[in-house]
Design a protein around this nucleic acid. Structure first.
Lengths: 227, 227, 227, 227
DNA sequence: AAGTAACCGAGACGGTACGTCGGGTCTTGTG
DNA sequence: CACAAGACCCGACGTACCGTCTCGGTTACTT
């Protein structure tokens, strides 16, 4: 592992593979020029402070100044660790929300998927759901932050969905010809659309209607069975 | 029609019906005390200036100060007309994009829907698509602006999609049991998810995969026909 | 009484002589062109509203907008009557304070002067005294308003002082060779200096010290008597 | 000397003694936590810019925005150094006027005082006199600014007057029983009254009349000598 | 043990934009 | 045709965050 400036796992996109964060700090191995390492403490107190601020006032409360003040870590140091406040918030959120929604396992793979959609829809109604929406929105104007959000939070959630999907494929309950990514976006994209633009509610019944439509498809059924 | 503060079409949600802007000024009916009306000129030059700024530098270039400077309309006046810069940008964007994507009509209703998905996916790649994403993201933190965006832009696009959907229902090519809103969100939500989070590309083939999945459903087909 | 634009007594400095304000309004006599006269009501309600505002929040509360709103007289009309808000405030203050401090008459003319100084010093401590200071200060940047203040308030107070002075001259108790204006400024100028800059207190004992010094002079007394 | 917020000389009134500005920085003694010191450059370029603006357009030209623009110091920084634009203007004016009017020394202490009155009266006619009047007036509505004005300008002028007075006392030419403050206010208060309200001219002869009256007193002389 | 970098907190700083306020001018329809 | 109502432009306000920088003190590794 190289030392020097890009010491965070994320900044170098190409190298990114496995789990993030402190793994490389734990094994500093041997640096070319072994100077004083970046403080682990600083990093963690930043994340803790950010988590608190997010819970108290949402994303807009997590300003760099506020994070710096509360964590006791100076702004300059913060900027050495993260490219933007969105990145920090994404990481803090990812750490906290790592396993927010458990994987359902009812035995019926299709029902599992529907249940997952239902749970995610519920999640969007929570305080954390608001923060999620704010982070997602911030991705549009902060590509660096977006990477953090995708890799430290979204990836986990998508992986959970993918696990469900693969299980359903193995059981032969879903169309194996559909790509995992496609399936996940089809199931959750509509929820996210509504979460952000607010043009339609996110009730349980709506969630069920969306998952049902996604599973059954929009095509007329009589014609399909008519064949 | 009451005068006073809510003289813009949007502020009074209940009354909102048709095309925006001056429609209600054209039919002032009988105001309590007909004072000097809001200047048409101010409103339009603001929208024009905002449109230009959006095209030049995206949403973040459309600051209130910049809009005020370019349009020659003072900030105070702007704040009398719109609740936030997002609202202005949404209206300006809506005016410009009013008739951007024409409705496809190939005779085959399903193909029309797929084609629409393809076109929207393309649109998201354009400069305007970027602005669209920025506006959509801004909706999360600006509920007032969100209303403008929904009513002055999204509503039109959704209506276009709804027209296609109804036509398809009439022709019996799609499942009449699926709600219009559900159908639209199922078709376009995935695109928007990708547009915002950037976790997957928005190529033509991906768009086709998504629309195909939406139309056919995720459920395994052999088992369905096997019954 | 001429009609036409300069219908206020003040605007034409050259003509100004006697007591101000409503005397001429009370006798509209016959205008050359019997059009609708400027509303007396408007003028008075402006002054009333201004007086209230002054009492509630001092000079800075008496903004043109506030006066307009409270009085029900439009800004345009106000600007027809007065050149600036200071002018209005000066007139309103003058009307209210016309006879705030009564003339003392103890029989001893010198004591009368001292007592007057004491009373004025007290007045400066009151709420009205604050407004007085604010108006006086405003005179520096608003010459038009200054004229109103001088003629509608200061003139009265100076006339009161002048009456005391003349009485003292008649009784031979003061130096008849000193000009009235000089005498008044010598007695009250120091108070005003302290009121504005706040470099020294305005207590009763200080007032007495100042009036004593003014009456007795700064010159060493032994030498004077030594002659 | 404590660091932290009150790092300007003025904010802590009790500690104020000598010359302003950097004196305390020069002897930081032992700060609790010697963080980056306030920039000398920023402070001085603000004062320079303000001085220029005052000379060009008087106090009303010295807006915070203008000062910020011309000095290249941001508004936020300015507000960290001074509580108000009046305070800045007062300091800038004090710096410039520090040694404007030299102390007269004719040998005759009474003549010195008269000459000083004459010179001050002249000063009030100059461009700087106008600025002085504007600053003095601003003191009424800006107590913080007033402190700056008193301590960075008035104090110096009063000290000059006090020196003259003490010299005169030593020579036995003036009444030693009169307090210095009283004497100064008696000599210069009338000038200031006229300067601000403009009810009477500030010619040389008027200045002489005022100083003569102040020195000789208003009391009738024949009776005094007659005893 | 001393030397020496880099790190760190603290926060000053220049920017940019914000939303608001007051002043003075104008426009419109009513009485 | 004077008036109220108030829309309008202007300019200034004071604040908030941003991202960069400059300090002086503090590690932790090297020599």
């Amino acid at each position: 592992m190289r030392d020097g400036e890009p010491d965070r796992p994320l900044p170098d996109q190409a190298e990114w593979t496995g789990l993030p964060v402190q793994a490389n700090w734990a094994s500093p191995a041997k640096a070319a020029r072994p100077t004083r390492p970046r403080s682990l403490r600083a990093q963690q107190s930043v994340l803790t402070a950010t988590r608190e601020l997010l819970n108290e006032g949402g994303l807009c409360a997590a300003t760099i100044d506020a994070i710096s003040t509360r964590s006791g870590v100076s702004k300059a140091t913060i900027y050495k660790h993260w490219p933007s406040r969105i990145a920090i918030a994404a990481e803090a959120f990812g750490v906290e929300m790592g396993d927010a929604v458990p994987l359902p396992d009812t035995g019926d793979a299709l029902e599992d998927l529907s249940e997952q959609v239902r749970q995610v829809s519920d999640f969007y109604h929570s305080r954390a759901g608001t923060i999620f929406a704010q982070l997602l929105a911030a991705c549009v104007t902060d590509p660096e932050g977006a990477r953090y959000f995708r890799e430290l939070f979204l990836a986990g959630r998508r992986e959970a969905g993918a696990r469900l999907w693969r299980r359903a494929v193995e059981r032969g309950e879903v169309d194996a010809g559909v790509d995992v990514e496609t399936a996940i976006d089809l199931l959750f994209g509509p929820l996210i659309f509504r979460l952000i633009s607010g043009h339609a509610p996110l009730s349980v019944s709506e969630a069920d209607a969306l998952s049902a439509a996604a599973l059954n498809g929009l095509r007329a059924k009589d014609r399909a069975t008519g064949l």
